[in-house]
Amino acid sequence: MATRAEWTERVERWERSGLSAEKFARREGYRPKQLYWWRWKLRADGPSQPSPTETPRFLPVHVVADLSPVVTEPIEIALPNGRVVRVRPGFDPATLERVLALAAEEASC
Rank of each mutant, 00 (worst) to 15 (best):
M1I: 10
A2D: 13
A2W: 14
T3V: 03
T3K: 09
R4C: 05
R4T: 10
R4Y: 05
E6G: 02
T8Y: 03
T8P: 00
E9D: 15
R10M: 13
V11F: 02
R13A: 13
R13T: 07
W14N: 01
E15M: 11
E15Q: 14
S17W: 06
S17Q: 08
G18M: 07
G18W: 08
L19I: 01
S20Y: 10
A21P: 02
A21S: 14
K23P: 00
K23S: 12
F24H: 03
A25G: 06
R26V: 10
R26I: 07
E28A: 08
Y30I: 06
Y30E: 06
Y30N: 03
Y30K: 02
R31L: 12
R31D: 15
P32H: 04
P32F: 01
K33Q: 15
L35Y: 01
Y36R: 12
W37S: 07
W38F: 06
R39I: 01
K41V: 05
L42C: 04
R43A: 13
A44I: 06
D45I: 03
D45R: 13
D45P: 01
G46P: 01
S48G: 15
P50D: 06
P52Y: 06
T53E: 14
T55R: 13
P56C: 07
R57F: 09
R57W: 09
R57S: 11
F58C: 09
F58K: 10
F58W: 13
V61I: 14
V61T: 14
V61K: 11
H62E: 15
V64Y: 10
V64T: 15
D66K: 07
D66A: 08
D66G: 04
L67D: 14
L67S: 12
S68A: 15
S68G: 11
S68I: 07
P69F: 10
P69W: 10
P69D: 12
P69H: 13
V71H: 13
T72R: 15
T72V: 15
T72K: 14
T72I: 11
E73D: 14
P74D: 07
E76L: 08
I77V: 13
A78R: 15
L79V: 06
L79W: 08
P80G: 03
P80N: 05
G82R: 05
R83D: 02
V85K: 00
V85M: 03
R86Q: 11
V87C: 03
R88L: 10
R88E: 12
P89F: 05
P89E: 05
G90M: 02
D92L: 04
P93T: 04
P93R: 04
A94F: 07
A94C: 06
T95Q: 11
T95A: 12
T95E: 14
T95N: 08
L96T: 05
L96K: 00
E97T: 08
R98S: 04
V99C: 00
V99H: 00
V99S: 03
L100Y: 02
A101M: 06
L102E: 10
A104R: 08
A104T: 08
E105Y: 03
E105V: 04
E105W: 03
E105Q: 11
E106N: 07
E106A: 11
E106F: 04
E106W: 07
S108K: 11
S108L: 10
C109Q: 13
